[in-house]
Amino acid sequence: MSVKLVLPLAAAALLAGCATPPQVVRSGDPAFANGKAVALAATQATPLDRARPDQAAALVVARLGGRTVEPAAADYLMQVAFSELPKGVGVMRDGAGSWLSETRRRFGLRRAAYAVSITAIETKTGRAAFSATATEPAHGDPAKAVDRLVAAALAD
């Protein structure tokens, strides 16, 4: 092989190794809302500057398959948050201290992460019918990360 071919192939392999799919911690079935009435719960969360405040919530409601109603008439209230986790923060797999997403280190550097958290609360009982958190290392435009994270959190 020529040197001109080896260098681009090595760079492509290195970049492909950097792209990792979002990691998801989920409880419940994402199909819980099919045909049900859902509403967004009011939230005080502050979104990232470049991500629209309602982007993650709108994507979640659109992908759930339920119909959107006012909170008083809803079967489920949805809490949706998109945030940037500081360097070194991970996501717990369970209450026993098992980490699903540890601090990622590349070349000895810690990285921040983007996260989408979704919780569906059944209005009649107040119990969580579904919850999911999807995380990925922070890179690129946060508005594009929202799409990937919501899709991963709601994947079957």
Rank of each mutant, 00 (worst) to 15 (best):
P21H: 14
T119Y: 01
H139N: 14
E84V: 06
T103P: 12
D75P: 02
L40H: 08
A74I: 04
L100I: 05
R50L: 12
P47L: 04
G88L: 07
Y76K: 09
V80D: 00
L149Q: 11
A112C: 00
P21G: 15
M92D: 14
S117D: 08
E102P: 13
L77Q: 05
D141F: 10
A74E: 00
G65L: 08
E70R: 04
T20N: 15
Y76M: 07
A138Q: 05
L48R: 01
P71L: 04
P21S: 15
A51S: 11
A151F: 13
A112G: 01
Y76G: 13
A134Q: 09
S83Y: 06
Q79V: 08
G126K: 10
G66R: 13
A39M: 11
G90M: 02
T135C: 06
V38R: 01
V91E: 04
T68A: 04
I118R: 03
A134M: 10
V150G: 03
A57I: 01
P71F: 09
L64M: 13
T123S: 13
L64C: 06
D29H: 14
R93I: 15
S98E: 03
R106E: 13
A134N: 12
E70Q: 06
R105P: 10
A112T: 02
T125H: 07
A115M: 09
A145M: 03
G65R: 11
A74D: 02
R52Y: 00
A62I: 00
I121L: 12
V60P: 02
G140N: 05
Q79G: 10
A42F: 04
G97A: 03
A42N: 09
A138Y: 00
F82A: 02
S83F: 09
A113E: 04
R110G: 10
Q23A: 15
A74V: 02
S101M: 02
A31H: 15
A39Q: 09
G126H: 10
T46H: 02
G28K: 07
A128I: 02
P22R: 10
A96E: 08
F130G: 04
A128T: 07
G90Y: 01
L48T: 06
Y76L: 13
G126S: 12
T20I: 08
V60G: 05
A120K: 06
A96I: 01
D147H: 10
A120G: 11
A96W: 02
Q79I: 05
T119W: 03
T103Y: 00
R148Q: 14
A152Y: 13
R52I: 00
R50E: 09
V69T: 11
A62N: 08
A62Q: 13
A96R: 09
F32E: 09
R63L: 00
G126W: 09
